[in-house]
Amino acid sequence: MLDTSILLVNGIAVGGLYSLLAMGLVIVFKGSGIVNFAHGALFTISAYAAHTLLNLGFSYFLSILFAIIITTLIGMIIERTAFRPLIKTADPLIFKGATVACAFIIIGLIRWRFGGLGDYLSLPPLFSFSPIIVGQFIIPSQQLIIIICVTLIMFIFGAFFTYSGPGRLMQAVAEDSEAAKVVGINVDIIFLWIWGAGSCLGALAGVLMAPVTLIFPDMGLIMLIKAVAAAVVGGFDRLSGAVAGGLLLGLSEVCFGYFVGTQYQDVIGFIVIIFILTFMPRGLFGSKNLSRV
């Protein structure tokens, strides 16, 4: 029972982080039709920003807040420099190359500032308390915080997109930017918001993840691929799909790691992607109008 509970809680916590990242990817994908390969780098940068600010003497809460704001701004800068000027070429290869280039620059800057491959930094946890025991379940504190935060964030973002004015504008632009332009929406600015919202989700995942694992420059790449996997499982065009995909991936990874061996844990994601893409072209939850084949 002990094992099961830890597995379950771990899986949900990890899956929740994948979901957050996947949501960020899906938002940008829906909005601008490209997969932001710099998403992993944004995730990394928020962790580093929080770490730096904390060391500069800011309070924990402020560090995290500023880290998220900084990352969101960087996401917007990427939109202005690596997406907007390229729209006229409209070649998916070019977009991909440009976001990859941004990721390279960001990771390079981090490595240059904070040291190379082997340097791991740590971020203290938000709260520290002893594991909560409910009946036979043991819930480690960090995981609990992650689960609570992720749930909250998802609801906030969901409500934001459904009920708030800016959220609805973004949805309209994501649905059909040409039509949005015709009815007088300033599409240019909305694109910026969309990238901001996506980056913000990446940043949130980064600061939540940082206390659990250590911070290192390449932490983003593997997380990016996991997020892509989660998004793919969810069909890549729905926020709810991304959430479900992330949870599914997190749980299956943790279980796979436990029952088969931890060295295989990272591989399951890749196998899942290839399998789902090849045999279930719409993902598990994707909408019908998504054509892939």
């Binding site: 280039a101 390279f104 620059i105």
Partner: peptide, 8 residues
């Protein structure tokens, strides 16, 4: 950084 900047 250099490679990324050139690519971009």
């Amino acid at each position: 950084i250099v490679l990324g900047a050139i690519l971009l």
